[in-house]
Design a protein around this nucleic acid. Sequence first.
DNA 1: TGCAATACTAGAACACGTTCCTGTTTCTGG
DNA 2: CCAGAAACAGGAACGTGTTCTAGTATTGCA
Lengths: 194, 194
Amino acid sequence: MTVQVETETAAQRARRERILAATLALAARGGYEAVQMREVAERSEVALGTLYRYFPSKIHLLVSAMNAETERLAARLSRRQVPGATRAERVSFVLERSTRSLQRDPLLTEAMIRALMAADASVAAEVSLVRQGMSDLIVAAIRGDDAPTDHDEELAAILQDVWFARQIAWLGGRIGAADVWRDIHTAITLVLAD
Amino acid sequence: MTVQVETETAAQRARRERILAATLALAARGGYEAVQMREVAERSEVALGTLYRYFPSKIHLLVSAMNAETERLAARLSRRQVPGATRAERVSFVLERSTRSLQRDPLLTEAMIRALMAADASVAAEVSLVRQGMSDLIVAAIRGDDAPTDHDEELAAILQDVWFARQIAWLGGRIGAADVWRDIHTAITLVLAD
DNA sequence: TGCAATACTAGAACACGTTCCTGTTTCTGG
DNA sequence: CCAGAAACAGGAACGTGTTCTAGTATTGCA
């Protein structure tokens, strides 16, 4: 079992980017169900079989798209020091920005979160990437400057679980968009009582 | 818009129960994907169209099955006083029993949790029932005897979010069955530090 | 009891994710 | 540059959730 070295021609990189761009465009327009594999293939000018060679399932495709979006968000947030005197304030800042960023494009978010939920073991690696990115953001906010501890990781994991579950409740029509942030904020103040 | 009074003939009640029984049997045997609508219809000796008249989608069907199972669990747990001196101990007792009860039948659990995740707005009512049932269990455990407060409801909501998200992580192959309970226990002790 | 409405059966048909096949293009090592 | 390998295009085909149709049985009511 040899490890494949990262050799991707320019054409391949271009295809991958066209595919992801088409995915984001379709998702932003009509959410999860609008991301149809035939349509993605057609828009990215790639055969259906090729699409499946790049992304072995619709779930992989959408989780990869979410990972790219998460990286963009993280890059934007980590540009400068998170403001706030207490842990709760700093984490609130980060999670509110994240939540608002997602809610700005509800259909895109619906598509990505739905894929994240539907992910089975074959997508575990990609999902872990997304989760690790979020976790890093939260841990960095808890610690103003110091090195993170295991305890911080646990707190971040809980907050992320709440964050995730609240998004699902929102997608499931059980709570409104405003409730999402309110509930997450409640969890932050309960868990991070300084 | 008139409200339909609950008139269900004996034959209809029997059909509904045959359908749910077939669903549980198939789910316990092969999980979510083994619950195929044609197969459920055939086993419950009902036409496919009739199955869809009773349960308008596979998700409705599985969430309804989960609701029935949750009620059975709640009935068993509420039979006697929850043991434990502290809130954390009592909640741990209830959630460990719930978690173990689910993990005893991993494929059935996979089917039901997956449906719960995939639920969109059209299933919101049924999903809320399941969630309310779980919440009642947790709140009752937090309060030994007293009336619950809003604060208790919030704590229960957070713990349930963690519980739910950890089940998803387990289904997604990102953590093992043993980790599920360990993580939930961690959350309990962090959130309910007495 | 008779009849209109509703419920049910059996099965075809449709949609979309996924797989597979055949022929062509592009890449890579010698 | 050439031969073989790998990647790609185009599209048929399959599986399963869901919908639809036509005919039959059941129910509720005057």
